[in-house]
Design a binder for these strands. Structure first.
Lengths: 346, 346
DNA sequence: CTTTATTGCTTAAACGATTAAGCAAATGAA
DNA sequence: TTCATTTGCTTAATCGTTTAAGCAATAAAG
């Protein structure tokens, strides 16, 4: 019943040899370290009998490597991030790494806390979905020479590794698609955030309209404070519909905004797409099951996550190489919610 | 630029004292260890200057406590588990613990791997959503005296800590609700799993029908192999509808089954609830946004997660106490998808 | 003016691993 | 026979921390 974990020392004692030998054998360095055949198999035998499992802490303390990476995301209960997390988890495991996930709630302070906690726990590196005003944190990591890869969002004026969707292009496609399908007054509901990916989504949307000769109206764009989503979205939709020229379609810049917006649109008994066409960022079952399946921007989640891990692994092996950067294309999945506009007066 | 992390030794050297003193001071044991006022503040000062951050690995190695808990769930990309994970993350943080999440995919082998990896990493304890055939793993943990709390699912014949929904009651309510609302032929689509929670859901459903004088028909219950959900669900629905007496309502025993089922029901252009009423376990935006909002069993996710952490903390403090066990009530959220049946022939 | 307590600090072992360096004995070469 | 090499193993330092034990010097008590 005395379940003391067995250590190298225990094995060494039983085998009547030094710990060093045991270590060599159990790490497969029998040849290099010229361990005798006989004693080697004896050691292995004993290790098996005692169910020896190495203590990762001790290994890490010695080696300086924990084989652990920190994944900072906005919120694990958001399906986009949950999916990312799953991919990262699997990819990391394939590489012999364990992942510690932390949710920042898009909040720079929480994000800093998480970074600190995980740095103290000696993670080898980070994959980070940055929150607003966290540029300084990124610079900190660089100064401390802690390897990291930015995911989904990056800072155009800081040279880092990153893996991101081309948010500009994605939003551009979304906007252009609505124009092509006959919509004339196209709103966007986005976050009131300086984060580059959000700015890019807005820019893409605006430029798509402009390029397609639908002159963008300032009041078509509503930016919601992240701290009051529901309130903000409702107000935005109300205003958009109350205008003299009410909008006929909305691009939601994120999944959360879309969910909140769609619930409200349901409450208002508006019909999608006849009263209001919808295109959204994000992807989830909710969009598939909506009475009128939602057209959405499908980010290459699997590839994003995989590549982020890959870049980080590269960085961990060769810390001094040039940053790896990649911008991936999102696919616009076209569904009924944005179908060609039916003229109101035939 | 030489960013060697600062250690106790560095501070000790700078202050011209021994490491012990530094350790005492920085751990707030100045009084007990009779450290001089002056030197104490000098040490604190230097620690601040050098941005000292303790190395958690070393601490843990010494103390045998990592302040880390392992959370084993089926799949982080499933919203139910993602939400649980979020709650556990936050609660753990409040208690000064870090969480490592692992997805088992309902697979005993993966689950064992995860346990082993995390045990080697010296987590202090586990919160586990058990997968099928993992009773042996649970017994192993008990033998090794590793603290853990089972979440959502438990083994009735193993005495452990657990926190679970009363799945029987929840399913009973779901079934009874459909009967009360006039449905006569009530199917259930569940997993083909021996896991107790699934058996309980099935038992609850069957007994609800029986108690309400709707004699349960064997072919109303379809059990799907978890390895072929889509195929299985489609076949199940097909069979249910092809019967001489086609069913008029379905209870989905899990969120994933419901999502798959609803997609298929949409494909078939069946109308909910007129052609087929629906009640499901699980909860997610998808259910709210469905054209006909889905009646569902709402498990007390927040409380489940919180309590699981609480139980684990208790176990970590007092390993030898009696197991804490709790069964919580789920709430049936009644929506349009199960509304009172309209007679077909008026 | 001893003896005893108290104060302020240091020493060193320990946690569990890794690994460079070194030492004897056995073997090979000259 | 003698020196060099190879083989098989041990010693001990190290990673960064904690903490029991001990040692002087000073203060308090007798």
């Amino acid at each position: 019943m005395s379940t003391k974990k067995t250590s190298l020392k225990d094995i060494a004692q039983r085998a009547g040899v030094s710990m060093a030998l045991v270590s060599y054998v159990l790490n497969g360095k029998e040849k290099e370290s010229r361990v005798g055949q006989e004693i080697a198999s004896k050691i292995k035998q004993i290790a098996k009998e005692l169910h020896y499992q190495p203590n990762h802490l001790a290994k890490s303390l010695r080696s300086g490597k924990t084989h652990t990476i920190g994944l900072i995301i906005a919120d694990i209960s958001n399906p986009f991030f949950a999916n990312i997390a799953r991919v990262v988890e699997d990819e990391a495991k394939r590489n012999g790494y364990t992942v510690i996930i932390g949710s920042s709630d898009e909040n720079a302070e929480k994000s800093r806390d998480l970074l600190n906690v995980l740095i103290n726990r000696q993670v080898d590196g980070f994959i980070i979905v940055s929150s607003e005003n966290s540029a300084e944190q990124v610079r900190d990591l660089q100064e401390k020479n802690i390897p990291f890869v930015l995911l989904d969002r990056y800072f155009p004026d800081i040279e880092t590794d990153f893996v991101s969707t081309d948010h500009y292009q994605a939003a551009y496609n979304a906007g252009a698609h609505l124009v092509k399908n006959g919509y004339k007054r196209i709103g966007m509901i986005a976050y009131d955030s300086q984060l580059f990916h959000m700015q890019e989504r807005i820019r893409g949307y605006v430029e798509a309209l402009t390029d397609q000769h639908v002159p963008f109206q300032k009041h078509w764009l509503k930016q919601i404070r992240i701290s009051a989503i529901e309130q903000g979205v409702k107000a935005a939709i109300d205003e958009m519909l109350a205008a003299k020229q009410p909008i006929d379609s909305i691009v939601f810049a994120t999944y959360s905004l879309a969910i909140t917006g769609l619930k409200y649109i349901n409450e208002l008994s508006l019909n999608v797409p006849d009263d209001l066409a919808i295109v959204s960022f994000g992807q989830a079952e909710a969009f598939d099951l909506y009475y009128c399946p939602i057209t959405y921007v499908k980010q290459p989640i699997g590839l994003l996550g995989k590549t982020a891990v890959e870049f980080l692994m590269k960085k961990l092996k060769h810390p001094q190489t040039e940053p790896s950067q990649i911008l991936m294309n999102a696919e616009l999945i076209i569904r009924a919610s944005s179908k060609t506009k039916q003229p109101v007066h035939t």
